[in-house]
Simulated assay, not measured.
Amino acid sequence: MSATISALPASPAKKRAQRRRIVGSGFWYIAVILVSISTVLPLVWTLSTSFKTESEALSGALNLLPRNPTVDNYAALFADGTFARYLVNSFILAIGGTITNVFFGSLAGYALAKLRFPGQGSVFATFLASMMVPAIVTMIPTFLVLRYLPLVGGNDLFGQGGVGMINSYAAVLVPFAAGAFAVFFMKQFFESLPDEIGDAARIDGASEFRIFLSIYFPLSTAGAAVLAVLTFQAGWNSFLWPLIALNNPDMYTVQVGLSAFINEYQTDYGPLMAGTIVSSLPALLVFIVAQKYIVQNFTGSAVK
C-alpha cells in the first residue's frame, strides 16, 4: 500500500511550488555570482595593473592578465624611500590610534556600565548624539582647537614644526583617542558581564581601576579585539583628516601619499596600483589574525 501511495504522481500545486523554489534558488545564485564578480573584479584588475608596463596600463586594453608581467612598479614605489616613510607614518598612527581608542573607550564604557554617578544618563546620551553628527561637520572646529592647543614636549618631539598640534602625530591621535562608537560598543559589552565579580573585588579592597584592568578588561578580550580591528582599519584607511592635519610631506600617511601619483596632467597607474595593493595588505592581515575573536564575539552575543 505504501509503495502504491509513493508511486502516485505529485499534485499540480506541489509541482508549481517546486518550480517556484527552483526558480527562486536560481535567481539568488545568479544574484550572488553577479555581486561576487562586481566585488572581486576591481581587486583583480588592480592587482593585474600593478604588474603591467606603463604602455600596457595606458593602452586601454581589457586584458585581465598582463602580457609582459613586471615588478618595476613595485621597485619604483620603494625606490627613493618616500613610500616606506608613508608606511611608517601609517603604522604609527593606526597602531597608536587603536591602542588609545580601545583603552580609553573601554575605560569610559566600563564607567558608564558599572559605576553610578550623577549625570550618567546625560553623558551617555551625549556620546550617542555625537555619533549622529557627520565627521566632516566637526573637522573645522577640531582643526581650530588643535591649532591653538599647545603640544606638550614641543613639535620637535611629535611633529615637524607645525602650529599648536597641527602637523604632528598628536593631531591625528588626540581627536579620536576615545571615539563615541568605542565607548558605546564597550559599554554594551561590559553590561553583559556580571556585577557580582566587581562587588567581590571591592569587598577585597581593590580600586575601581584595578577592577577594570585586572578583571573586566581581560574578560572583554573578544569585544576589544573586534573594536581594535575596526579602529585599525578606519585609521589605516583614513584620508581626509590626515590630509588636513598633516601638511608636511614627511608626515603623510599611505592614503595621502598615494594621491601624489595623480596630478593635473597624468596618472601613474602602475605605481598607483602597486601602492594600493601594498597598502591593502596590513588591514587584510589584521582581519585574518583577529577573525577568531570576531567570531567569538558574535557567537557569545548569540548565546547570551
Rank of each mutant, 00 (worst) to 15 (best):
L219A: 08
G159Y: 02
M132P: 02
F158E: 13
D156T: 05
V172P: 02
P194M: 14
L173Y: 00
G154H: 09
F184H: 13
F158N: 10
A177G: 00
F189S: 13
L151A: 06
A171I: 09
G205C: 13
S168T: 11
F212C: 10
F184S: 14
N248I: 15
V229T: 14
E208A: 12
A224S: 15
G159W: 01
P150F: 09
E191D: 05
L144E: 06
A178E: 02
L151P: 04
F158K: 07
M165R: 08
P134T: 13
A206C: 08
Y216A: 01
F209K: 02
I215A: 07
A225H: 00
A182E: 10
F184Y: 14
L144Y: 01
V133C: 10
G164P: 03
L157E: 09
Q160H: 08
F185K: 00
F217T: 03
F209E: 02
D156R: 03
Y216I: 01
N237C: 00
R210T: 14
D195N: 10
F232M: 08
P175Y: 04
L144K: 06
R202F: 05
F143H: 09
T138S: 11
P150Y: 08
T221N: 06
E191N: 03
G159V: 05
P150W: 09
T142A: 11
F212Y: 08
F176T: 09
F212K: 10
Q233A: 13
T138K: 11
M139L: 06
L243T: 09
L146F: 02
L173W: 01
V145S: 03
I244V: 11
W236R: 10
T142V: 11
P150M: 12
S207H: 10
G154P: 05
F232C: 06
A171L: 11
E196D: 13
Y169D: 06
A222T: 11
M165F: 05
M132S: 09
G154W: 07
F189R: 13
I215D: 03
F185R: 00
L219W: 03
F181A: 07
A135N: 04
L213G: 03
A245N: 05
F158W: 14
R210K: 14
A245W: 02
N155R: 11
